[in-house]
């Protein structure tokens, strides 16, 4: 290994150690503030040790919030993925259609622009009133939050299609439909994936809110109910679990994108 590479490696190791120390410091300070100094009572801010204990406890116990951690995760995933898949299955084709067919664009875009500014959270009370508390309302809310970025990105992706590529297809005698499938959609794929990635993020985020207000199980519910039960340690467990699963989704989608979006293009 040459000098430059060696030096780069040393630097990396040095900063890696700094990062590890920083993290340890973070947890230590947290621990000290809670378990040692008791700056705030346990039920408001738990110590890291308590969080870990609560997590292990939750692996098997359903009390006090009605399910084990797996039960909550399963409930959350079910809702999130249902809403998300529906949102993507409707949103992407709609975005494509809006960008490809001029008439559809002129008719649907104004309607879409009406719905778009309303934040997803604002839909929650309406959905509860329409669907009651349960899978239906939650999935509907998540559908709305996933749907919007999918449409926007699919639309932008198709609109990105270079005219010259369409002309190539056209000169070879391709029909409109063939042009859509062999030129426009491949062009749009990177942005479509970006849309899928963003909407998974929004879906997961909205899930929190939806479950806090319209549910009796799931990670968001866990956060909500443990507030009234004064179990801050469980709240933190739920928060970290939400963060972890969110990260797994992002990493997973990035891997999928690298596989399907060929040519080294990113949206």
């Amino acid at each position: 290994m040459n000098e430059y590479a060696k030096q780069k490696r040393k630097e990396k190791i040095k900063f890696g150690i700094v990062s590890v120390i920083s993290l340890c410091l973070f947890f230590t300070i947290w621990y000290v503030c809670t378990a040692v100094l008791h700056l705030k009572p346990d039920y408001i801010l738990p110590s890291p040790v308590q969080v870990v204990e609560a997590f292990i406890d939750k692996l098997t116990r359903t009390a006090p919030d009605g399910a084990t951690i797996f039960g909550h995760i399963a409930a959350s995933l079910q809702v999130a993925l249902t809403g998300y898949l529906l949102g993507a299955l409707v949103g992407v084709p709609l975005g494509v259609a809006m960008a490809w067919f001029r008439r559809v664009d002129m008719f649907v875009t104004p309607l879409f622009d009406l719905i778009r500014p309303v934040p997803t959270i604002a839909w929650i009370p309406l959905m509860i009133l329409w669907f009651g508390i349960g899978l239906g309302a939650k999935a509907a809310i998540i559908f709305v939050s996933a749907f919007v970025p999918c449409v926007i990105n699919a639309y932008a992706g198709i609109k990105q299609t270079k005219p010259v590529h369409l002309w190539v297809a056209q000169t070879f005698g391709a029909s409109r439909k063939e042009m859509l499938f062999t030129v426009a959609i491949p062009t749009a794929l990177p942005l479509i994936f970006t849309g899928l990635r963003i909407s998974l993020g929004t879906a997961w985020m909205t899930l929190c809110a939806a479950e806090m207000l319209a549910s009796n199980k799931g990670l968001g519910y866990m956060i909500q109910v443990n507030r009234s039960l004064a179990r801050a340690d469980l709240i933190v467990v739920a928060m970290l679990t939400i963060g972890l699963i969110g990260t797994i989704f992002t990493v997973g989608l990035n891997a999928l994108e690298r596989k399907f979006v060929k040519g080294g293009r990113r949206g």
Binding site: K162, V164, V168, V183, G263, R265
Partner: peptide, 11 residues
């Protein structure tokens, strides 16, 4: 065409 027109998503 004058501009490069190969499809970037295909080999």
């Amino acid at each position: 065409f004058q501009e490069y027109s190969s499809f970037p998503w295909a080999t």
